[in-house]
Design a protein around this nucleic acid. Sequence first.
RNA 1: GCAGAGGUAUCGAAGUGGUCAUAACGGGGCUGACUCGAAAUCAGUUUGUGCUAACGCACACGAGGGUUCGAAUCCCUCCCUCUGCGCCA
Length: 429
Amino acid sequence: MIDIRFLRENPEAVKENIRKKFQDSKLPLVDEVIALDEELRQNKKRADDLRANRNKISKSIGALMGQKKFAEAEEAKKLVAEQAAELAACEAKEAELNERVTNIMMVIPNIIDPSVPVGKDDSENVEVERFGDPVTPDYDIPYHTDIMEKFAGIDLDAARRVAGNGFYYLMGDIARLHSAVLSYARDFMIERGFTYCIPPYMIRAGVVTGVMSFAEMDAMMYKIEGEDLYLIGTSEHSMIGKFIDQIIPEAELPYALTSYSPCFRKEKGAHGIEERGVYRIHQFEKQEMIVVCKPEDSVVWFDKLWKNTVDMFRTLDIPVRTLECCSGDLADLKVKSVDVEAWSPRQQKYFEVGSCSNLGDAQARRLKIRIKGDDGKPYLAHTLNNTVVAPPRMLIAFLENNLNSDGSVNIPVALRSYMGGVEKLVPKS
RNA sequence: GCAGAGGUAUCGAAGUGGUCAUAACGGGGCUGACUCGAAAUCAGUUUGUGCUAACGCACACGAGGGUUCGAAUCCCUCCCUCUGCGCCA
């Protein structure tokens, strides 16, 4: 959500931004919202004047009653009654205009960073940098569930009976590997100065609508029957929700937090939920990082954030690359975003394991996350978020890249202390 | 889950239908005076949002409705906190 004052003063810049995102159908909304906003302000002025007048008269009634001038008080009451209908009409109009303006502002995309490459869709995303050699071994890399099954590490049949498609049982060494990766990722981020958090895994509707659009909510969120609660789709939801309506003293910033949570997603309409395995599933776990900072610091934080993920994957001997989201593929709330992708030797391509986003002040404006400056004036914060690691999807990359020709899986040095000291996992069959 | 008490600015807290609402009183913060400096003392200052060229005006007393000329105050619904009892990892 952008500042309507900015839109009012720079309609051409907002239109240019819409064109860059290939959303030309939204172009008329700019002039429409300017006109509606003008009408809203005029209407508001009139309503304010009517309220001011009513307040004035009401106050005088109090004085008249005190002096026992009841007849005059009755006269004054009539004056208020005369304008009551107009005020009611104004207030109804105000509410309606307000809603229309907000609805439009919600779909006007955030102003993208000048560095974002212009492109129509995900096919035009731009590889930024590769880290590590994407090696292709001379032996076959099996499908990830087949690797897991060699370790008696996954039971999808039982999961389907118990919960349906999109769920999994991880077992034995594979389950331990899953927990080890999360524990390692947690400590990795703590060492880099982030504060570890465990947030609520359910949030109220009021928080949900604050952190995502209605369409996203419908496609992603599971609702608890009979309660005003939703299962979180990522800890970002409850972590950003933590700051709703807060005015944060400047001295406390930045908040650099790393949070763990299970994530629940309906994946309604998403491609791939039918695919066998743990690539796209209804439930997974994630170590996340989020930053709330001063506006001038968000650009620097953005680079620090994605580098953390790259570094973490490199310590686990997984080749990765960063892929910059082009203008057309960038979600409307985001200023800039890069995906971290891991190399899949089986598929001979990189696939997404994390996403780093700078939301600018758009999320803060919706959620009223403000900073109190030294001069006492509050201003909007900037927010960022990034995936540290999200297993079990991450295990696909881990297993494929650390698999040996004999079917054993290397445990990188960094992870060994979390795996009881073993250097490699040897299959059971 | 039941019963009782409560939710007012940065904190504590008064206000229970109008002349006590930017909000008493107290603490804290900031500015200044005194001081070599500090403490103490004294004086001033200290909510947010929207609209306005400005003066100002409006809105907000947990949230949302209602009654009223007028609501922090009365009524309804919901949320949260505390205390006790019950239940429970």
